Simulated scan of single mutants.
Amino acid sequence: MIPDELSWRARAPLPLPRGRPRGRWSAALAVAAALGWAVTGTGARPGALIAGRIGGVRLLRAFAHPDLAPAFLRLVGRAVVETVQISLSGLLFAVVLAVPAAVPLADNVGGPSLLRTAARMYAAALRGVPDLIWALLFVATIGPGPGAGTLAIGLHGGGVLARLGAEQLEAVDPAPVEAIRLTGAGRFATAALAIVPQAAAGLTSLLLYQWECNIRTSTVLGFVGAGGIGQELASSLRLLRYADLSTLVMAVLALMLVAAVLSRLARRWAGAAA
């Protein structure tokens, strides 16, 4: 066999095993059937929007005439400030809860297996309960208000940040980590000197993203009495005050836009975005 033929055979792609296309078609049909079953079960059909067109038109007309009375705008401003306070306080509590678990969870830290198992269970327990359920529990415990929303966001966010923070720590360049270990440094020194500094930009981006999520979440939690602008939204919906609802929705959109711009600027300053 001549060398050119050998090189051609080496470059030639290996034949796919038989039965794989049939398996892919079966998987695609199974996914399509599952999606069709889900859509049918929820009743999410265009006809539902057509049937509710009268209420939709009434809502859109009210949205075109928001309530801009000075007294109501002051109420909206206080609700926006409270939402920001909930998001920042919840982020602080989440970081306090996440740091003790994120470092042991990272594989490159090399923590004891028992500690890693405990940290994994701890983080899973925090993020396994939805923040809405946490809010309901805290509203029943300490009463309605921003305190319940802050604690709910902090607990759920602590579990999320622990898991995602550990992944950021694991994604660093292993060469500096091994170099520090060769000097005889222990786990804590290796994490502090080689792992965390490399992951600082990614961790900063993660914290800023979590803050944006906290603002959105605090808006939803207000519907169960956890304070913030969501509580005003729920009140306007119950009373069918669509003009007030229009003003509140615009305030939420403006708040999210400002948060996104600030987060982008902070990422650039921290070197986490180009």
Rank of each mutant, 00 (worst) to 15 (best):
M1P: 14
M1F: 13
I2E: 13
P3L: 15
D4H: 11
L6D: 12
S7G: 03
L14P: 04
P15W: 04
P15H: 03
P17H: 12
P17S: 11
G19W: 15
G19Y: 15
R22I: 02
G23S: 13
W25H: 05
A30Y: 02
A33V: 14
A33E: 08
A34G: 09
A34W: 08
W37R: 14
T42W: 09
A48R: 14
A48I: 11
L49W: 10
I50W: 15
G52T: 10
G52W: 08
R53A: 12
R58N: 09
L59I: 00
L60S: 05
L60K: 04
R61S: 14
P66L: 07
D67S: 00
A69P: 03
F72E: 05
F72L: 02
L73W: 03
R74I: 09
V76Q: 11
R78S: 10
A79N: 08
V81K: 02
E82T: 04
T83I: 10
V84L: 15
Q85D: 11
Q85W: 13
Q85F: 10
L88V: 14
G90M: 00
L92F: 12
F93G: 12
A94N: 02
V95R: 08
V95W: 09
V96L: 15
V99M: 15
V99R: 07
L105V: 11
L105F: 09
A106Q: 10
V109A: 13
G111C: 15
G111R: 12
S113N: 10
L114F: 11
L114H: 09
R116V: 13
T117F: 15
T117D: 12
A119D: 11
R120H: 06
M121Q: 13
Y122Q: 07
L126N: 00
R127W: 00
R127N: 00
G128P: 03
L132K: 01
I133V: 09
I133E: 02
L137W: 01
L137C: 06
F138K: 04
G143Y: 10
P146A: 14
G147F: 04
G149D: 01
G149N: 04
G149M: 03
T150Y: 00
L151M: 10
G154L: 03
L155N: 00
H156A: 12
G157I: 01
G158H: 00
A162K: 12
R163C: 01
R163Y: 04
G165N: 06
G165R: 04
G165P: 04
L169N: 07
A171V: 08
V172C: 00
V177Q: 03
E178D: 15
R181K: 11
G184L: 01
G184M: 03
A185D: 06
F188Y: 05
T190R: 12
A191G: 05
I195Q: 08
Q198P: 06
A200E: 06
A200N: 05
L207T: 02
L208R: 08
L208T: 08
W211V: 12
W211D: 02
E212R: 11
N214S: 12
S218Q: 05
T219Y: 07
G222H: 06
G222A: 06
G225T: 07
A226P: 05
G230L: 12
E232D: 13
A234H: 09
S235Q: 14
R238C: 00
L240W: 06
V252C: 01
A254V: 06
R267G: 02
W269H: 13
W269I: 15
A272C: 10
